[in-house]
Design a protein around this nucleic acid. Sequence first.
DNA 1: AGAACATATCAGTGGGTAGTGATATGTTCT
DNA 2: AGAACATATCACTACCCACTGATATGTTCT
Lengths: 106, 106
Amino acid sequence: MPSTKTCDLKTKLFRGLSDSSRLAILNVLRAKALTVNEIVERTGLSQSNVSNHLACLRCCDLVIHEQHGRYVYYQLSNDRIAQLLDLADELLAEVAQGVSQCQNYS
Amino acid sequence: MPSTKTCDLKTKLFRGLSDSSRLAILNVLRAKALTVNEIVERTGLSQSNVSNHLACLRCCDLVIHEQHGRYVYYQLSNDRIAQLLDLADELLAEVAQGVSQCQNYS
DNA sequence: AGAACATATCAGTGGGTAGTGATATGTTCT
DNA sequence: AGAACATATCACTACCCACTGATATGTTCT
């Protein structure tokens, strides 16, 4: 059974995933490594917003980046991230309606 | 590839998991079904706090409840929830340090 | 060197939400 | 019926965090 400390870290990990911008970024990165601008185009988010969130995701070791010339390529750092997203989809397949209706948060 | 709508729902699902109280509740429920009071004792949270979060988790179909006399037993609704928590632990095993250091949120 | 492009950083603000306390509802005793 | 227990509901407040806009840093051209 996870300790309190591990639980708090897990809370923080999930908080990293509980933002629509960050999740959109992780989602477009599932296909392949992308530059910041490509991420901006595909998500429709502003550049500074994407960059801010990338800093967060990078700091949390959820993505890694590689500078190629003046472009910076980002990709998922770990296969388990995609697995986690997949598993979340599977769970959602069964609880989507409930989650959708829940009024406690948006 | 998940649609925007699915992504938003996933965001909401993760938001459900991104609170230390809710995660603590889900965590103690992994062992077995518990009454509200047992959850209160094991998590150290206040009764109203636990009850509020249980309402949220119940609404999201993440837990189910059964009334037995004056006690209400709660349990996880779906095996994938525990799987998701396990997978998060596995991912954390590799990114814990980064997550821990990240200053973007607490 | 300077211009154009690509990305990062930072401070400020507004909106959302978690926790508390009081109270309501529901159940099982005597 | 009434008391004691178990749980749920609700309104309020304080805090946290996501987005924006401006600007800084870094890179590759001519």
